[in-house]
Computed example of a mutant assay.
Amino acid sequence: MRQHLQHHVADKFSRKLRFFKGLVSQPKTVGAIVPTSVYMARRMASVANPASGLPVLELGPGTGVVTKALLRRGIEPQKLVAVEYSPEFCRHLRDELPAIRLVRGDAFRLEDTLGALRTTRFDCVISGIPLLNFPVSSRVRLLEDVLSRIPKGRPFLQFCYGLSSPIPPGHGQYSVTRFGIEIRNIPPAQMWMYRRTG
Rank of each mutant, 00 (worst) to 15 (best):
S37A: 12
L143C: 13
I75S: 03
D106N: 00
S127K: 13
T177G: 10
A10F: 11
H171R: 04
N49G: 13
Y174Q: 03
K68P: 07
P151I: 09
L70N: 04
D95N: 12
E88Q: 08
V65L: 09
V66H: 07
H92M: 10
T113R: 01
P55Y: 13
V65I: 13
R101K: 11
G31A: 11
R91D: 11
G105P: 09
L17H: 15
P98K: 00
F134P: 00
V125F: 06
I183W: 15
F159Q: 01
T29P: 09
D112K: 00
L114K: 00
C160W: 11
R73W: 05
L5R: 13
L102W: 06
I150A: 15
P27W: 15
I126F: 06
V81E: 10
L59Y: 07
W192D: 00
A10E: 11
D95L: 09
G162M: 12
L114R: 00
S138P: 07
P151S: 15
I126D: 01
R178I: 06
R43Y: 10
F108A: 02
V140W: 03
K28H: 08
M40F: 02
P55G: 02
V103Q: 11
Q26A: 15
G60Q: 08
S164M: 15
L93H: 00
L57Q: 03
R178D: 01
S138Y: 09
R154Y: 04
R18C: 08
T29L: 06
L102P: 06
P166C: 09
P87H: 02
L163A: 11
I100V: 04
G162A: 13
L59W: 10
G64W: 14
G74V: 01
T63P: 08
Y39V: 13
R2D: 14
I183Q: 07
E58F: 02
F134T: 02
F159H: 04
V83K: 01
H92T: 12
C90M: 03
V176K: 12
K28S: 10
R72D: 13
P87G: 12
S148F: 03
K152G: 14
Q26F: 06
R118G: 08
S127D: 06
F19N: 02
E58K: 01
G170A: 05
Q173M: 13
Y174K: 09
A69M: 08
L23N: 11
V9M: 11
L157V: 01
S25L: 05
I186R: 04
A45C: 04
G22L: 06
L71Q: 04
L147C: 09
P135H: 07
D95A: 14
A41G: 13
P87S: 10
V140C: 11
L80H: 05
D112S: 00
R101A: 15
P187L: 09
D106F: 03
L102Y: 08
I100H: 02
S37G: 07
C160N: 05
V125E: 03
L93V: 00
G162R: 13
G115M: 05
F179K: 08
K28L: 15
R195C: 11
R2I: 08
A32W: 14
P55E: 12
S37E: 07
R139G: 07
T177Q: 09
